[in-house]
Structure formats: C-alpha cells, structure tokens
C-alpha cells in the first residue's frame, strides 16, 4: 500500500535538520545552516481560504470580520485577513493549529491554488527591489498591508508584515502554484548576494510572534 503524502510545490536543496508530519504534510521545522538571514520559508502547507460575498462587510453572514478597505489587513491570533476588493477577502493561517472551514458558501479552500512563501530578515526589501517595481517601502502605508501586483512579472498577493528604514523586515506572498519552481529560483538567485537562505517553520513562527508583539510600523 502506497503511503499518502501531501507535497508542497516548493522544494529547497538544503539539508533538513528537523521535520514533522502533520495532516500528511512533511513539514520542515529547521534546515541545517540557516544562517543569520534573510530567510525564505515555504508555507505551502498552511491553510488559505478565499471569501467572496456581496455582503462581505457584514460579519453575521460569514462569521468573520474583515478589514473595510482593499489593501488593508488584520493580523489576529495567527490569522491574516486581507481585504482584496469590494467583495473578496483572503484568509491566510499562519499558525500550526488545525483549521475548519466555516459552513458558509462564500468560502473556498484555496490552500492548493498557490505557492505560499515568507521572506524576512536583514535586507529583505533589498531582495524585493530586484524582483518588482512595486513600492513595498511606501511610507504612506502602515504594516500589515496588502499589495496585489507582480513579482518577476507573475501576479502575486504580497502582505508586508514588518519594515524598517534599513530595508530589513519581511513580507509573505502567494502566487499561482505552478510557478513555484521558477519563483523560488528567481528569489533565491536575487537574494544570493544578501545571503538569503531557506529556513524552516520554527524560524517563521518566531518571526510572526515577534511581529505580533510589536506595534506595527
């Protein structure tokens, strides 16, 4: 009998130091030699939902409070809620707890649709400015905020979670799943001069905890 395993579209060449299996996913908690950062972490196993409804601002329908204007986000208890447009919101689970999709027809589980990556640490935004003309450092926006636009000409959803004047900080992003190999290749290539390396879920969890404890921007 063949084992059932769920595969993320992202594979890193680094040696695994520690991993665990959850819900048939083999999740890397840490790689060898993750270095001082910046880091690239694969979040492919984390649940993502799409919520669309014409009355999306009314939480009594979906059970979920969503930010009121496109481009704004809530980060609450490891759930990142991104308002995309008049009728659509993305929900990205950043923790490790099991999730149950609400019984409301506006929700679609889109975990499988996209690559889900985090890029954070020193020089994170120096890497980003080689990948896109989008202004991730725009001083007029406060973190966390959502940009819908291209990285390497591939449409992405990018949420900037932390940002400092020295171009350190970080963001997380999704794009169409099929682009995983080429997107990871492009990001690692661009980040090489800054020491960008793959890291595991633990480092990501530590970062998110730190971000949540700080006041944003």
């Amino acid at each position: 009998m063949t084992d059932i395993q769920r595969y993320s579209p992202v594979t890193f060449e680094s040696s695994v130091k520690e991993s665990e299996v959850r819900d048939n996913w083999k999740i890397v908690l840490a790689y060898q030699n993750e270095g001082p950062g910046p880091w690239l972490v694969d979040l492919g196993h984390k649940t993502r939902w799409d919520l669309q409804d014409s009355q999306i601002d009314d939480p009594s329908q979906s059970g979920l409070s969503v930010p009121s204007s496109p481009g704004t986000c809530f980060l609450a208890e490891k759930k990142l809620i991104n308002r995309m447009n008049r009728t659509q919101t993305a929900i990205w689970h950043l923790g490790i707890e099991e999730t149950i999709i609400p019984d409301f027809n506006g929700f679609t589980d889109v975990t499988e649709s996209t690559v889900f990556l985090a890029l954070f640490g020193p020089d994170a935004f120096h890497v980003a400015e080689k990948l896109t003309a989008l202004d991730l450092m725009d001083p007029a926006r406060t973190t966390p905020f959502l940009l819908q636009g291209p990285l390497c000409h591939v449409p992405c959803q990018i949420v900037i979670l932390e940002r400092h004047a020295d171009m350190s900080g970080g963001f997380i992003m999704t794009c169409s799943r099929g682009y995983a190999d080429s997107m990871v290749q492009a990001v690692l290539d661009s980040g090489r001069e800054f020491g960008l390396r793959p890291a595991g879920e633990t480092r990501f969890a530590d970062w998110v905890r730190k971000v949540q404890n700080q006041t944003s921007n």
């Binding site: 595969y7 579209p9 080689k130 390497c152 169409s176 099929g178 190999d181 080429s182 661009s190």
Partner: peptide
C-alpha cells in the same frame, strides 16, 4: 536578470523521471 518564469504541474518530477520529454506550451 531575465528570470525565466514558467509553470509546472504537480506531477512534473515524476513525469520527468518516467522519461517525459518536455515542451513549453504557453507558460507551462
């Protein structure tokens, strides 16, 4: 940098291992 961006299916690796000879069709 002209990163070449293209898409692969979830079965890419095993298709390759199975002797698949690939072509670019659109972005795939």
């Amino acid at each position: 940098a002209h990163h070449h961006m293209f898409k692969r299916t979830p079965l890419h690796a095993s298709q390759k291992k199975g002797g698949g000879i690939f072509r670019n069709i659109g972005v795939w």
